[in-house]
């Protein structure tokens, strides 16, 4: 069987469709979701829609690289907003300022620095590193909690985010080297898609665990 075909089935149909699993559990347990989880549920829905637009554009042989520039702003906005509901209220204005600053930086980068058909390899790794920082802060802060790790639904979601963005940083940096489609690019995209699949599974477990209210401690 042609590796390209296998990859297409895997990356274009299977992995994006897997996003429906966390969305299903998120909607099912919606009334038990804490605000940050509701924001992340919206993030999955919006990112799936952007992915759909991406697929439509690909089918019409259009360049989709610029869509990643927009997606970077959207993902940073949602994830930072979700963590602003988890962290102390005191840092909330700081996180809002960070969203504004990052959006300006991304827009500037898109129009004036990486304005050709190229990935935003400057801004996306920065965004990913900041997200990794949020995740690490959450782990460090909750590391001394005297309760079962698995009981906190946000622990699962946080792990999913951490695994995806930490592993993805390097790829986001060298994305422009992968513009030329060859076997190596295919392998790299398969790996990142698999990590995304793991993220979806962890998200689904997190939403599934939300059957009981107050499963996450707000950090004050």
């Amino acid at each position: 069987m042609n590796p390209q075909l296998i990859y297409d089935i895997y990356a274009i149909y299977f992995v994006p469709l897997c996003a429906l699993v966390p969305v299903y559990y998120g909607i099912k347990n919606y009334k038990f979701l804490i605000p940050s989880l509701k924001i992340l549920l919206n993030f999955i829905v919006v990112s799936s829609l952007i992915n759909l637009v991406n697929l439509i554009m690909i089918s019409r042989h259009m360049h989709t690289v610029k869509l990643i520039h927009l997606y970077t702003i959207v993902e940073f906005f949602f994830i930072t907003l979700a963590f602003s509901r988890i962290f102390s209220r005191r840092v909330r204005p700081l996180l809002y300022a960070l969203i504004a600053l990052f959006t300006i930086a991304c827009t500037f980068n898109t129009f004036f620095i990486q304005n050709k058909i190229e990935y935003n390899s400057y801004t996306r790794p920065v965004g990913a590193l900041i997200i990794v920082l949020y995740c690490m802060s959450y782990i460090i802060k909750t590391g001394t909690e005297e309760r079962k790790w698995t009981e906190d639904s946000f622990n699962w979601i946080n792990s999913g985010l951490l695994l995806y963005y930490a592993s993805g940083v390097v790829m986001f940096m060298f994305n422009n080297y992968l513009l030329k489609w060859d076997t190596w690019a295919l392998v790299i995209w398969t790996i990142i898609d698999t990590i995304l699949l793991i993220e979806y599974i962890l998200f689904a477990i997190g939403f599934y665990k939300c059957k009981l209210p107050t499963t996450t401690i707000q950090l004050s």
Partner: peptide, 8 residues
């Protein structure tokens, strides 16, 4: 590409 894979 190999370096990217290893790093990831």
């Amino acid at each position: 590409a190999v370096l990217i894979i290893l790093a990831m």
